[in-house]
């Protein structure tokens, strides 16, 4: 079992409630998928090196829930997703919009547990 987690601070938290999303194998490398968790839309991504990221699915620039359908890549060292509507890039690590640093999308803890991808929206 591998645990790939990009939010080290949550590792110690005991109250984290994890919601299973899908099998790790269901996620295409370098592509996203949308999930509905407790009424919230989450975009989950698997990058080429196997890392996982979870961010909000809503594109703040268009208002549409489409971030999961964006192209995944890098800006410098930063893993990013570009919004499919008008191509602004968001950091998958921090959620910050690299083309407009005043804008950000939420990020969520994500992990693989027994081959299942889980996110926490608590």
């Amino acid at each position: 079992m591998t645990i790939i987690q990009n939010h080290p601070e949550t590792r110690t938290g005991t109250a984290t409630a994890w919601t299973p999303i899908c099998a790790h194998a269901d996620l295409l490398p370098e592509r996203g998928a949308a999930a509905l968790v407790a009424g919230r839309q989450i975009a989950v991504f698997r990058t080429f090196d196997g890392r996982l990221f979870a961010v909000g699915n809503r594109d703040p620039f268009s208002g549409a829930y489409v971030i999961s359908r964006g192209i995944v890549g890098t800006r410098g060292e930063e893993p990013v997703v570009s919004a499919p509507m008008h191509k602004q890039s968001f950091s998958l690590v921090t959620g910050m919009c690299l083309d407009d640093p005043a804008t950000a999308i939420p990020t969520y803890p994500v992990r693989v547990h027994n081959g299942t991808v889980e996110v926490s929206v608590a």
Partner: peptide
Amino acid sequence: GEQAALQDTNDHFLANLQKNG
């Protein structure tokens, strides 16, 4: 295969994205 990850959303879903998703 890997080509799927390269496509813009339109090619990925084989249709045209509209403003409301």
